[in-house]
Nucleic acid binder design. Sequence first.
DNA 1: TGACTTAGGGGCATTGAGCCACTAACATAA
DNA 2: TTATGTTAGTGGCTCAATGCCCCTAAGTCA
Lengths: 245, 245
Amino acid sequence: MTKKQTEKAFLESYDIHDFDVPLTSVDMAIFTVRSEKLQVLLVKRAQHPALGQWALPGGFIDLKLDKTLMDTAKRKLYEKTGVRIPYLEQVETFGSQGRDPRGWSVTISYLALIPSDHITLGKDDSSEQVAWVPVDEAEDQYPLAFDHNRILEACHQRLRSKVQYTSLPVNLLPNEFTLTELQQTFELVLGNTVEKKSFRRRILDADILEATGNMKTGSNRPAKLYRVKPEGQSHFFTRNIEGPR
Amino acid sequence: MTKKQTEKAFLESYDIHDFDVPLTSVDMAIFTVRSEKLQVLLVKRAQHPALGQWALPGGFIDLKLDKTLMDTAKRKLYEKTGVRIPYLEQVETFGSQGRDPRGWSVTISYLALIPSDHITLGKDDSSEQVAWVPVDEAEDQYPLAFDHNRILEACHQRLRSKVQYTSLPVNLLPNEFTLTELQQTFELVLGNTVEKKSFRRRILDADILEATGNMKTGSNRPAKLYRVKPEGQSHFFTRNIEGPR
DNA sequence: TGACTTAGGGGCATTGAGCCACTAACATAA
DNA sequence: TTATGTTAGTGGCTCAATGCCCCTAAGTCA
């Protein structure tokens, strides 16, 4: 018997149902900016366990539909928001004996950023109650299901941390935006102010934006409109931005 | 019937064996410095699938023994190296339909750093063949089992990236070390040279080391010995280090 | 036409890193 | 005892990026 035949025989006799394995799911923190606040999407659980509690959207891997974990995340995001191509990044995997009453479970958490003008709730047929909640409120005033408060904090922390040295917040804005809007979005995510000149120098030197020539009009000098260059999605800067002391 | 009773009933009737779930495991890249090279621990698989191929150490979660994913990682690390308290960090979770011939599978990867003087191979009773391999060789010349080449690259990349702005490499050295040894370790991990003065300024300004007063003797000026301050395990710097142009 | 508001940039001060050369402290050999 | 070689450790200049302040630009509106 060759080694290959042996492996084939092994695989034929293998059945995962014979083993004790953890439950494995995907949960995600979907962020956007609404009413000048960083907000996160929550769903009210329509099923046991934790029925009726607020939770991060998520669910099990569909072994038929999904080819990768990212597929599961994309599917969930689309079901909840109707957004197909957002910024999506894996954050951290939580797994323990007690985090789900059903037993040993593992959840892979994802961070999603979607533009504020792309929100179309209710594509989902699960008839779950869905709400956008300011992140600070969600962290401090909502007792989320399972360990979702911890997951949310991990995602929020990752977001804040990456904003220090990347251009991530462009994914929270519509296609076209002004530098002032971009700066305000940075400030929202960072939670502190940013020095205007340093910010503009940094963004423009990074060469990730292109002006669209149009102007945004108001009762003052119009601002140039920019959009992200095709390959400029996630640029890394060299230093931090800090506000005035 | 109250809500709580309903949940209890739900949990009693719940059986994970009724569902299709992915296989879930933990794999890890254990790094150390040997012969002035960054090396990684590989094991030769003693079981199907991929029997006889080199792979990263890892295995399934023991739902009885392990309370968290970190426990699984610690247990595996101890089995292979005899090290109990290393630097251990979760890196990335890989999950897909095809990465394991047994079917849909998920693996949570961990990065471990152990001091070069703590290595005691063979605590394991699995009688697997175990080897330290220079990382570059492992990546380029070893066709690892499953998607372990990709996992190794992710861990290696995470390590290199974090060395840019943290003091991680102290975990690759014995308790006491000289600044020159520390610099050499940084250079090994980074793959390029580091400017001496800048390096020392940065490390000492960070205030994460304390001199032990002793000196290391040689045929030249003795170097001060340092050790990591109790709470200085993983300091974050503000900027990058770069070698001469 | 002047007041008001936000966009955008000029230019200097400050800070931290790169760099090189210099001194310090040992062993060893003449 | 002294010269020599080697590595440890530092002083101090240069350069580049950022912080900071304030000026100008370009609109609306009364």
